[in-house]
Simulated scan of single mutants.
Amino acid sequence: MQTYETGVSNKSEYYIYTAGSQAKSMYFYPLCTGHFYYAPGYKLSRNRYDSFLFMLVLGGECNIIVNNKTYTAKKNQIVFLDCYQPHIYYSDNGWEAKWLHFDGPVARQYFETITDNFNVVLTLKDSYLFQKNLDKLYRNFRDNLPIKDALISQYITNMLTQLLIDKDIPSKINTSADVIEETTAYISEHLCETLTLEQLAKRASLSPYYFTRIFKKETGYTPHEYIIATRVNHAKFLLKNTNISIKEICFLSGFANESSFCSTFKKWEKLTPGNYRLTTTQTTNQ
């Protein structure tokens, strides 16, 4: 479709799509996509537009305002916006971009992980694959090809995945991820030993407060919760796959005594260790 929006060249095009209920429940799905040439002075301000936006800048540069902060996106950079929130984008000199409004059951989780809720302008080491998937999706609509929801979702997933694994992450985030990865490996290797917050934070050369904060961010658990979850999971494996006594499993999983093990296990699994074992297929040790 040709656009008639003020400040957008009439050689620009866009396409609207209405996803079915099944696609909305299962997939990432597009709402609209386009290739726009924005004139100098163009400005768009919205309180919300229920979707998430990819904008690949192909030329020029644009400014984006979200949460009272201004960002600038240049050629080959990607703007990733939560359009459920107020947002503005504009340029004094104009820019060219391909864009996609999309949504899906886990779109917000991807957005929050990729942008860390503030880094809405992203730089890929190589934007070729991202652009290739965006082009495929755009051409599907431009060339009036049959729309296959699963395939369209795959294109969007490919773009999201590349942003997850290949974007330039600030060094402090890389460092945090490395520290937590090393810590979780240490916990697994020393599960039967006493593990305290102070000990783990000291190993990471961080304060207990900051260590807990980045650990929770990376894993979804506090250090204490992660240790307990790992011990319970280890106990579940032994209960399912061995005939070792519950008392022995208690100590092999790092619990101080059988009473503590049984109460903790029941709190997490809503079953006692004995009842959990009865609900699973047991095997004998080889």
Rank of each mutant, 00 (worst) to 15 (best):
L31R: 09
T222C: 06
W99V: 01
V106Q: 12
F261S: 02
Q286C: 11
N76C: 01
I64L: 08
A201H: 05
N119D: 13
E198L: 11
I147Q: 07
Q109C: 09
F141Q: 02
T3N: 07
L163I: 06
T3G: 04
G34V: 05
T222Q: 05
N144E: 15
L31F: 07
F54S: 03
E248N: 12
T222G: 06
Y128V: 10
Y226E: 02
Q154M: 12
A204P: 00
K236D: 02
Q286E: 14
R108D: 11
T230C: 07
K75M: 13
L124M: 11
N140S: 12
Y27V: 03
P86D: 09
F141C: 03
P105W: 04
S51M: 06
K75A: 07
K267R: 14
A201V: 04
L81F: 04
E189Y: 13
C83M: 10
R108H: 10
Q282I: 09
A23S: 15
K240Q: 13
N76Y: 09
A23W: 03
T264H: 05
H234E: 10
T184H: 01
T280N: 14
M1T: 10
K75N: 12
M159K: 02
P223I: 01
T219I: 05
S21C: 08
L164W: 08
S51T: 09
T33I: 11
I16A: 08
F237V: 13
T230N: 06
E182V: 11
L145G: 05
G220R: 08
L191N: 06
F211A: 00
S21I: 11
E5S: 09
V121L: 04
E198K: 13
R108K: 15
K43H: 09
L151R: 08
K74Y: 13
Q85K: 15
T264K: 05
D168W: 06
K247G: 12
G274I: 04
D50T: 08
T18A: 14
P30L: 05
L122W: 01
F118T: 14
I227R: 01
T272E: 00
F255D: 00
S12R: 04
M26F: 11
S207G: 13
A235P: 00
Y89F: 15
L53Q: 04
I227N: 00
Y210C: 08
K270A: 12
D126E: 14
L100P: 00
S207Y: 07
T219G: 03
K202S: 14
L145W: 08
K43C: 07
S12V: 06
L58H: 07
Y155R: 01
G274E: 10
I246P: 01
K148N: 15
G60V: 01
Q22S: 14
G34E: 01
G60A: 08
K125R: 11
L122Q: 05
S207M: 08
